[in-house]
Each structure stands twice: as structure tokens, then as C-alpha cells.
Simulated scan of single mutants.
Amino acid sequence: MAGQETGERIGALLDELARQAGPEARDVADELVRCLVEFYGEGLARTVRLLRSAPKGADPLAVLTADELVSDLLILHDLHPEDTATRVGRALDKVRPYLGSHAGDVEVAGLDMEAADGPTLRLRLRGSCDGCPSSTQTVRWTIEEAVARIAPEVAHIEVEGMAAESPQPALLQILPHRPDDAPGEAAPSGEPGEAARWYELGPRSLPADDGATGVTEVSGRALLLVRLPGQLYAYRDRCPLCAAGLAPAVLDGELLRCADCDAAFDVRRAGRGDRGHLDPVPLLEENGSVRVALPGELLGAGP
């Protein structure tokens, strides 16, 4: 159908909707059409910018698929050069260094593209979390976010040995912002499956050098960031033993020692200590961008 014919058809459908459902429904539909036009317009604009600025001899498809929005559009229209299984593998490769801090790994147990409720990914965690609920949930949220970014058509993720599965948003939902960018209905604080909200951190809030720490505020909550060689870690800024803030804590190699009670916690191993356990915060670092998730129980917790 030609562009002019498509436009005329859309106008006719909007008029028919107004006749059947009234002017308020027509206003909502008009806004929906505007959002769709803006969404696809941004996708086209990015495609043009990316191809114009691509290095000489670069593979055009590789350039386009490296951009999240354009990649999602290619997936939506079944034009992406990589299949779902390949992109799931890339997503898991991105989070494996993070999972290592929880003494674990993840492997694909199955991918059912014909499942009744939508494509379902089954994962198996190996040796993760040592039974720590906060660490287990942190691992799960991190995996789900990584997969949603690279393989958004995956509707559900099931993880062997974990209590509840959080459904992934349907492919794009045809929104100008990803579904996980908007707050949703969360379960009561602390219940399994409660949603996490992801936030991007500005470069000024990040410790730049290995062995450096820093405290930053995200949505009113103080987070401790620790940079070790090869990995950035995030924890709630609170000692589990004395409840003191960890800004003045001393980093001795990979051990973080509370300045108030002298308790030590292993930064690389999800904040484990002999007498307590720091609260880990999901973190993804890629392409110069750092994002952290604030689970509902942390959003509702005290300072």
C-alpha cells in the first residue's frame, strides 16, 4: 500500500473510531498515531545518522544493530541478521563477569519460540548466590535486563531453582521509550517477583580508577560504588552490622572495611562478610554506559 493510501486509510479508521466510540477515543487514537510516527521517525533519523557517520568499509548491518533502538526495529520486522538464540548468548556473555561476583554462572536450558504465552527462555544458574536472597534476586534482575535489551522478543524467562519468574515486556510495545523505562505495578515490598526500576548513572558519579569508591544518590537512595580491576560494583550504602554509611570505609584490596565497626566485606563476592552481607544492587556496564536497578524493597527502605 502506497504512503498516501496508507495515510488515507489511517484517517478513515480514526473517523470510524470517533463515530463508534466518541471524540475522547478519537483523541487517544490521535495521540497513539503521533507516538508511532515519532517513534519510527526517530528510528529512521538514527539510521541515517549512523550510516552517514559509519567508518569507511564498515558493515552497514553491524553499524545498525549496534544501536539499541534501530536493532529493536529490525527485530520487530524480522530483519535482524542474528537469531534470538545468538542474541540471548550475547546478552548472557555481557552479564557473566557480574555473575562471577556472586560465585555463579548461567547457561541456557532451553528456548521455546513457540510457547503459548510467547517465546520463553529457560536458564540454569550454577553455584550462584550461596543462598543469599538479595544476591539471588540481584542476579535475576540483571539477567532479565540484559536479555530484554538485546532480545526483547523473549516474553518470559524461567530460571531453574528460583522462586518466581518475572515476565519480560512484549516486543517493544511500540513505545518511544522501552517498557522498563516506565514505572509499573509492583508487588508489595519484598515479595518475590517485585519489579525493579533501572536508572542510568552520569559519568561524574562513577569512581574512575581501580581501587576507588564513591557514594551517589539514585532516586533518593545512597549507593556505594566500588571500582575494582575489570568490574564496577554497586551496594546499598549501609553497613549491615552497625547501619553506618560506607563513604568513609577503607578498601583493602578486595575487602571493604567499615570505618565504624571494622567489619570486612568481600566486594567481588557479592559483599559477603564473616558477620553479615552487604546489599548488592544490580548493575550493568556496557559501551560507556552504567545502569543500576533499585528493587522495590530498596526503594522503600530507610537510608
Rank of each mutant, 00 (worst) to 15 (best):
P295C: 00
S128D: 10
Y235W: 11
C239F: 05
C239A: 08
V226W: 04
E42F: 00
P23W: 03
M113R: 14
L64V: 03
P169T: 06
V28A: 12
M113P: 07
G202P: 05
R87L: 07
E153G: 10
L284Y: 03
D59H: 06
L284E: 03
L14R: 13
R122A: 14
G253T: 04
E200H: 10
V48L: 09
I150M: 15
E107Y: 00
A186N: 12
Y233V: 03
Y98Q: 13
L278E: 04
L299I: 02
L50V: 02
E217N: 09
P169L: 07
L298A: 00
S53C: 06
S189V: 01
L64P: 04
G190E: 00
A186E: 14
G3R: 15
T65D: 05
G127F: 06
V159A: 04
P240Q: 09
H102G: 12
P183R: 11
L283H: 07
Q231H: 15
E200P: 11
V37Q: 10
S289A: 15
Y40Q: 09
C239R: 00
A18N: 06
S135H: 02
H80R: 05
L44Y: 13
A222R: 15
V290H: 04
P97W: 02
S289N: 10
L175P: 10
P188H: 01
E8G: 09
A293K: 02
R149E: 15
P207M: 05
A148S: 14
E254R: 15
V215M: 03
P60L: 01
P248W: 01
L44Q: 11
I10H: 01
R268A: 12
A270F: 02
E194M: 00
V63A: 01
